[in-house]
Design a protein around this nucleic acid. Structure first.
Length: 272
DNA sequence: AATGTGTTTTAGAGCTGGCA
DNA sequence: TGCCAGCTCTAAAACACATT
């Protein structure tokens, strides 16, 4: 926070090349390297850990995706307390058809991403994390278009109204978990990114504004526009709104970690 | 201090709907 | 009908915060 070399933006090709060279010269002396490329020591250390392990780039292959799902499942199971595991075990006994359930938060909180990275092998932890939240969102909502067409409009409206209502002074007081319910049964990180997007596209100079200022703008200026837009669309063709699904407290293991590869191809509609 | 986890931004591909 | 503007999605980077 107090380092003038923070907030320097992305590393260019040349920057990363320099970083490699300096690392070969100075080893893990991040402070020195940071000085040389005018970045904070933290920044160069993180960047190097990303580039030192040669990882795949671009779209995920099917096999990789499978591997990731499996890895996340294993890591979550491993982390469960002995008591939880016992419970799982006894449930398995009385109901061998495997209706194991898992509490919601375990699906996205406290996952050790380095462990996942090690199991997936071809991607680094950051990539794994992004990809997982994408997969999870899809599986939690199982195929509903929570953020498409009129639903997207309604979701934005709900989001702004709810945020305005709770009236916090600072963005980090927001309970995203709670806010998620205005969109549907989605992970909190999903709402977060939607909100960032919203403010970035609707609010001019948002970077120079405080959170309450941003909220005021969204509520007073953007909200009416969104409502108008929604109305227009609704009457155009009797588009149907999907009420946001209520968040479930627990999920069935098999609903999240199934390993068919119907993830791509066609959406096939919801089966059983 | 290093490592691990969480949050916020950026970039760009790809789709969609309005309009010339 | 084809093009453009604006949108969402996907991927990943940068930074912040927490733990050990």
């Amino acid at each position: 926070m107090f380092d003038v070399n923070n907030y320097k933006g992305r590393y260019s090709k040349g920057d990363t090349e320099k970083l490699k060279i300096y690392h070969s010269l100075h080893g893990n002396d991040w402070k020195k390297i940071g000085d040389l490329v005018a970045r904070s020591s933290l920044s160069v250390a993180l960047k190097f850990s990303q580039i030192s392990s040669e990882r795949n780039h671009g779209a995920w292959s099917k096999a990789e995706t499978q591997k990731l799902i499996k890895a996340v499942e294993e890591v979550i199971l491993k982390k469960m307390s002995p008591r939880d595991l016992k419970e799982v075990d006894s449930k398995l006994q009385e109901n061998p058809e495997g209706c194991l359930s898992i509490v919601r938060e375990k699906l996205y909180r406290g996952i050790s991403w380095v462990e996942v990275e090690a199991k997936v092998e071809t991607r680094n932890w950051m990539q794994c994390k992004s990809k997982w939240s994408e997969i999870l969102t899809k599986r939690m909502t199982n195929g509903r278009d929570v953020y498409r067409g009129v639903n997207a409009l309604q979701a934005k409206i709900n989001l702004i109204e709810r945020l305005y209502e709770i009236n916090v002074e600072d963005a980090n007081e927001i309970d995203w978990e709670d806010l998620a319910s205005t969109i549907g049964d989605v992970p909190p990180s999903y709402v977060q990114t939607k909100f960032y997007k919203l403010k970035a596209t609707c609010v001019p100079f948002w970077q120079k504004k405080t959170f309450p200022e941003i909220m005021d703008y969204l509520y007073e200026t953007s909200l009416p526009l969104l409502k108008e837009k929604l109305e227009k669309k609704m009457e155009k063709r009797g588009a149907k709104l999907q009420a946001p699904a209520a968040p479930r407290r627990v999920f069935l293991f098999r609903d999240i970690f199934y390993c068919d590869d119907d993830s791509e191809e066609e959406d096939g509609g919801g089966q059983s």
